[in-house]
């Protein structure tokens, strides 16, 4: 279980998080929605320790994330980055097996390659892709490779940062289905950031809306459409008029 309590973060004079309180139960798929620049990515980066909060507490299974041994702590996580963030200089299989080729989870090279190919197959890519380089792949294939890398070491928690951005609707649907299947199959906890309401409905068990550096609304995805909060209503229906300023 992940618990964020009163987390604040500022960059210079810009206050991004103003007291985020968020609880994600184990095995739950939480989707965080919100406008651009509302601090969704910073929230994830705070949990991962890529950004240190100014104040507040973040617990993973009851333990403060700041006190955990970094290598063992990070081994529990997988992350799919918005742009894939694949390493250009490494082949696809080396990207997928990156964590299995070094550090505490290191395996023999042949075994790591085998696992990488299996994970690639799991996300719908053929073994022939394994020896290609990221620059040779389409955007959708790069996302799948990023997804394969995120699940390569069977993490307990997976983060998805804008998983369908830049993809055509069909490929976005494929990625959404894959995420849902993999999360259910692995029993992992998932936190997804997205603007794409189709993704929200396909992936989420619960939805949290971040606005003004705080969680504005949180509830089961089934209650999202009936939500009376005007901020949520404006966001999920994409209305230009409403309490959220169109120009930020």
């Amino acid at each position: 279980m992940i618990e964020m309590t009163d987390v604040h973060k500022a960059f210079g004079s810009k206050q991004v998080l103003r007291g985020v309180n968020l609880t994600v139960q184990s095995g739950e798929s939480m989707v965080i929605i919100g406008g651009s620049g509302t601090g969704k990515s910073i929230t994830i980066k705070c949990i991962l320790g890529l950004v240190h909060p100014d104040s507040g507490q973040i617990l993973l299974d009851g333990k403060n994330v700041e006190d955990e041994e970094r290598d063992a702590f990070l081994a529990k996580f997988g992350m799919l980055f918005q742009g894939g963030a694949l390493f250009d200089s490494l082949s696809v299989w080396q990207n997928v097996a990156f964590r299995l080729l070094r550090g505490s989870l290191k395996r023999p090279k042949d075994e790591a390659r085998e696992i990488a190919i299996e994970k690639l197959r799991r996300v719908g890519l053929t073994p022939e892709v394994a020896d290609q380089f990221p620059a040779e792949l389409s955007g959708g294939m790069q996302k799948r490779v990023g997804l394969a890398r995120a699940i390569a070491a069977d993490p307990e928690v997976i983060f998805f940062d804008e998983p369908t951005t830049g993809l055509d609707p069909i490929m976005a649907g494929v990625i959404n289905d894959l995420i849902r299947e993999i999360v259910v199959e692995m029993g992992a906890t998932a936190i997804t950031i997205t603007h794409d309401m189709t993704s929200v409905r396909a992936i989420a068990d619960k939805v949290a809306m971040l606005h003004g550096g705080k969680i504005r609304w949180m509830g089961p995805v089934a209650e999202l459409d009936g939500c009376s909060d005007p901020y949520v209503d404006q966001f999920i229906h994409g209305k230009a008029e409403g309490p959220i300023a169109a120009v930020r």
């Binding site: 890529l50 980055f81 694949l86």
Partner: peptide, 9 residues
């Protein structure tokens, strides 16, 4: 990619 490296321990 630098953030990705960190998340990959």
């Amino acid at each position: 990619q630098i953030d990705a490296l960190t998340t990959l321990s």
